[in-house]
Design a protein around this nucleic acid. Structure first.
Lengths: 67, 67
DNA sequence: TGACTATGTCAAGCGCACCTGACATTTTGT
DNA sequence: ACAAAATGTCAGGTGCGCTTGACATAGTCA
């Protein structure tokens, strides 16, 4: 599962800490998602999509590596 | 987080077991999601959306009870 | 009536999502 | 060059998503 978080964050010139604050999660959680260490929960994915005004499918790319 | 799984399943006349098979998860996992006991992971949400040919936002409704 | 299907639910266990706190490294700005 | 900010990462802990296996209940059908 890839994602465009880093780009969307850069477009707004936000730090990982600032994004974390807006999403109400820890900075480490944002970092782990950006660096592909784990996928967000569905509720967090909804918060992310709402924050950026996009659909979940426009931010997260299911690479289907879950056979 | 509410969802329309039960309706979508009924439209296709699938049992929970059959849906579980198509999603490659356990029947109990499908039941727990339908009955609101827990939310699916993001990868599973993608599989569900792809199976029904819909967007995640068209199946799962974020009621924002995660402040 | 008795077999079969569908649904709901419980228990125990595993792995991941997320947490706090801490530290090292890289980048930025004066 | 130096300080501050940003990023990456580790350790230890909590809770949830999902598993297998089992059982109870209700509905359908020969």
């Amino acid at each position: 599962m890839k994602n465009r978080l880093k780009v969307l964050r850069a477009e707004r010139d936000w730090s990982q800490a600032e994004l974390a604050g807006r999403l109400d999660v820890s900075r480490q959680a944002v970092n782990a998602i950006e660096t592909g260490k784990h996928d967000p929960s569905l509720p967090l994915a909804f918060r992310i999509a709402r924050l950026f005004g996009l659909r979940i499918e426009d931010i997260f790319i299911d690479d289907g590596d879950t056979p």
